[in-house]
């Protein structure tokens, strides 16, 4: 909370005095091999390592040469204006883009040193390991219970019904949905409100116990209380897991993340410690974005 306050004052300061365009990238220690990105793209204990990732939708290139590490036990926030490729990039991390016809990914993305785009790679264990919460809530048209129980069931994570029920309850509790649905677990998941559906999807994802969780604007449809609950969950999960979260809310990025990556028109412009990116952005585009001059 303290840091947030600092951040807010800092942001206000920056809004009042418009600084001249600056390009500090050359002064900062960063490896030239990593393209134009400003800041430290590497992480000391990286779980996922992305090098020179390009994504094409047919002839159109949506991601241009992104290099980024995602460290163990860290939350990395991906921010940037709408349409800049945040979703596209995050969906590369568990090969979700495979499902889009005409989508092509080049470069290398490694999880624990293993290339996930290796033809030998099996996407089933990969996606069990790297869970995902989608931008639009997409519960199965089945009961609430079935929605959460599905992942553990297909992966055989529980021995018996009681265990499965426990996993379901636990996941729903952690997603902050339990109290609202505990009496209606057999109701269709699609009958919930948009925000409830999103929390159901979060519960479904964490029920599988993934090691890396990708969240694409998980809170865009949530009220402040549910948002706080999810943010608290992210904080808890960070102890064990690695999380990448796309968000349009700078406050949220500042509250939950340790590192922040700023995307612009398919390029990774700047990445760094969250506090540093928000209080002292090194790239003009980043500064313009977080001070609200566009985006």
């Amino acid at each position: 909370m303290n840091s947030l306050l600092e951040l807010k004052t800092a942001m206000r300061d920056e809004r009042t005095e418009v600084k001249p365009a600056k390009r500090l990238g050359t002064n900062v220690s960063f490896d030239r091999d990593y393209g134009d990105t400003v800041g430290e793209v590497t992480a000391s204990n990286a779980r996922m390592v992305c090098r020179d990732v390009n994504v094409f939708y047919g002839p159109k290139q949506a991601i241009h040469g992104v290099n980024l590490d995602i460290g163990r036990n860290e939350v990395i926030a991906l921010i940037g204006p709408s349409g800049c490729g945040k979703s596209t990039f995050i969906r590369c991390l568990n090969r979700m883009n495979d499902t889009i016809v005409g989508c092509r990914v080049t470069g290398s993305i490694q999880l624990d040193g293993q290339d996930i785009y290796d033809p030998q790679m099996d996407v089933v264990p990969l996606r069990a390991q790297i869970g995902m919460v989608f931008q639009k809530p997409n519960p199965f048209p089945k009961s609430i219970y079935e929605n959460v129980a599905y992942g553990p069931r297909i992966h055989g994570l529980t021995q018996n019904k009681a265990e499965l029920e426990e996993v379901v309850e636990n996941s729903l509790r952690r997603a902050g949905l339990w109290d609202e649905v505990k009496d209606s677990l057999d109701q269709p998941g699609t009958s919930l409100s948009g925000g409830q559906q999103q929390r159901l999807c979060i519960a479904r994802t964490i029920a599988v116990n993934p090691e890396v969780i990708l969240m694409d604007e998980p809170c865009s449809a949530l009220d402040p209380i549910a948002t706080a609950r999810i943010e608290q969950l992210i904080d808890e999960l960070r102890m064990q897991f690695t999380i990448a979260i796309v968000t349009h809310s700078m406050q949220q990025a500042a509250r939950v993340s340790q590192r922040t990556a700023y995307f612009h028109l398919g390029k990774l412009i700047e990445v760094g410690e969250t506090a540093q990116v928000f209080t002292n952005p090194r790239h003009q585009l980043t500064e313009d974005y977080i001070t609200g001059r566009f985006g």
């Binding site: 997409n138 199965f140 599905y150 992966h155 599988v208």
Partner: peptide, 27 residues
Amino acid sequence: VPPSIREAALGVGASSMQTVLHHVLPL
């Protein structure tokens, strides 16, 4: 069948066959 249903199933690690049999086909 909306593609989001397929994505949801694939996203929790269902195989293509499971996605089709458990989610797409019933719909």
